[in-house]
Every structure is written in C-alpha cells, then in structure tokens.
Amino acid sequence: MVRTLYKASLRKLISYIKGNRKAIAVELERDMKTAAGLHDFERAASLRNKLRAMQELQRRVMFGDKEFLDISKDKALADLAKLLGLKDIPVRIEGYDISHMSGQQVVASMVVFTNGVSDRAEYRKFKVSEKNDDTGNIYQTIFRRLSERHLKSWGRPDLLLIDGGKGQLAAAIRARDERGVAVPIISIAKREEELLVHKTGSQIDTAFIEQIRSQLRTDIMVHEDGDVYVVNLHPDQRNAGSHSKNLRASMESTRHERPTAAENTLAATDIVKLFQRIRDESHRFAVSYHTALKRQQQTKNQLEEIPGIGPKTRAKLLKKFGSIKKIFEASDEDLEVEIGRQKTQLIKQASENININRQ
C-alpha cells in the first residue's frame, strides 16, 4: 500500500515537472477539500503540504548548466512586462556588456535568455573599435546587431538590456533608431545597480512606472533624472562595491519579506533575480572573450619578435597549431611541412632562447 501511494505521488511529481502544473494543482486541491469534508483532517493536511511543496518546486528552475536559482521565471517575465508596460511577455531578452583593458582588445558580448532561461547557442560576440569609449562601442555593437542581415539570421529581440548608465543607454537608442527597428531598450547603471528607462526613447509604456513613482512602496522606488526614469528594485541597498552586489543583496534581504496588499501587484525580487542572471552572464561572456583575445595578442607578439618570421608565416603557424606553446612544442618534421627547414630552425632557436631565459 505504501509503495503504491509512493508511486502515485512520484507520477504526480514527474507530471508536474513536465509542465502539467495546473491540472495537478487542481486535482490536489479537490482531493484536499474532499478529505476535509469527510473529516479526514490528517489526509487533508498531507494533501495541503504536497500542494505547497509542488508550488515551491515551480520556483526552482534551471538557468544554466547544473545551476539552479530560487526564482519563478514565469512570474519574473510577467512582472517585467507589467513594469515596462510591454504588450507581451519578452520571450527573447538580450544582454550586452563591453570588456577591455585601457582600450585594448575591446569586445562586446550578446547573451540571450529565451523564456527566462539562458540560451547559450544564441550567444554572440563582437570585436569593436580599439578605443576606451564605452558609449561609442555600445553604439557600434547595437548598430551591427540590428542590421537587416542579423535580424534575419538571429531573430528579433523583445528587449535589450544594456550594461551601463545614461550615456550607454542613449547610444544604444540612437543606434536602434538609425536602423529604424522597433525594440524596447533599458539599461542597468553600474554604481547603484538601478534600471534606467528613457521616458520616450526606451519605447515602452511608462504608465506603471509613473504610478509607482507616486506611491510609497518598500520594494520599488522610482525617481526622475532628466529624461530618464531611475527604477530602484532594492531601495534598502546602496553603493555596489562589486559586480551585481546590490542585486544579490536585494535577493537575500527581501526573500522572507511579506509585501503589503498594495505591493502584491508586482514582485520586484523575481525581476531582480532575472536581471542579475542576465547581467552576470553578459559580463562573464565579455570578459572570457576579452581574455582569449589578450592571450592571442601575447602569442602574436612573441612570434613577431622572431626575425625572419613574417605575418603570413605567423598566421599559418597559428592556424595550424593554435598557440605559441604548441608551435614551440611541435616536432621539426611537423614545422618543416608547414614553413620549411630554414624557418623551422628560427622557431626552434627562439624556443630554446625562451626556455633559457625562464631558467
């Protein structure tokens, strides 16, 4: 009997995970009421606990490889659409970040979240101009992203999330308008981790944000900064000292808070978690690409220091072996096949000199 009940519960759990949430919840609630009507209060309590457990399960969704966050993505997307006055839930959200070292190896990342879940197959990366100009680089990135060719091959985004302040937001909006594409754009300011929404340029309905601005709430605070609305989803957290610090702090501090009746219309915490994930991903992806280019440049510089090895030979070697380490470790025979005996001797001599200097 116990095993039969266990199997039945397991089948319901699997069915729930697969997406049959509403049907299972209705069934459990019906059985709970029936048990209560028959004065079988122990069974009614057990069914109530199962219903609550399954509802909590929905708030644990996979966001990436072996990574779980305590978040209801459905709720986050619905609340985001409400906050920004979007007609539909943003199915495809793209996050952008710029990474460089004093204007060198400047790269931009584009991460994609489909239905609230990271979609790594859709990630893209851009090499942009070699200068320390974040606004100019964001403009260049968004202008390239919204080209007719990329819209056709990559699809049209429902929302763009820019990592940066008013300057970066304005640059992204200008690039979009010059392309003549209709897509909402907002940004996250670095210092306070606040959302920036342009009153007219973000292409959203600001009615709900304006409503929040006139209310006294503990979960969201809105103020104006010229032509931009600044939306603070964590009013009790200020001055981020590290990337996304305030977003994470907000998650912890508001996890057990019970909103008032007026605040039940929108849960800021779920939106914060979603934005934190997108922001972290865009930053991680940009930094990883920047690091890869930096290593590639270091390899190129080492090869450039070898007399007699020109740009065509360097390109050929890197294409064949992939790195300076593998070039230096290659056998004489493998190198000679690619560049001949004379240049192979130059490579081997340079390799020996590097090893001597390291000793």
Rank of each mutant, 00 (worst) to 15 (best):
Y6S: 12
I17M: 14
R21A: 13
A23F: 02
A25C: 06
A35C: 07
A35H: 08
F41M: 12
R43I: 12
R48K: 15
R48M: 08
N49Y: 07
L51D: 02
R52C: 06
E56Y: 03
F63L: 15
D65H: 11
K66S: 06
K66G: 05
D70T: 15
K73I: 14
A76E: 14
L77Y: 06
L84G: 01
V91D: 11
V91R: 14
G95C: 08
S99N: 00
H100R: 03
H100V: 03
H100W: 03
H100D: 03
V112S: 13
F113T: 11
F113E: 01
D119W: 05
R120S: 14
A121M: 07
A121W: 06
A121V: 09
E122L: 11
E130T: 08
N137C: 13
Q140W: 05
L159N: 05
D163N: 09
K166Q: 10
G167C: 07
G167Q: 08
L169V: 11
R176M: 12
E178D: 12
V181W: 04
V181H: 04
I188G: 02
K199E: 09
E210D: 00
D227Q: 08
V228P: 01
N232K: 15
H234M: 13
R238T: 05
R238K: 13
A267Q: 14
A267P: 06
V272W: 01
F275E: 05
F275A: 10
R277H: 13
L293Q: 07
R295M: 00
Q296L: 13
Q297E: 13
Q298D: 13
L303Q: 01
P311H: 04
K312V: 15
K316N: 12
F328W: 10
S331P: 10
L335W: 03
G340M: 02
T344D: 07
K348R: 15
N355I: 09
I356P: 03
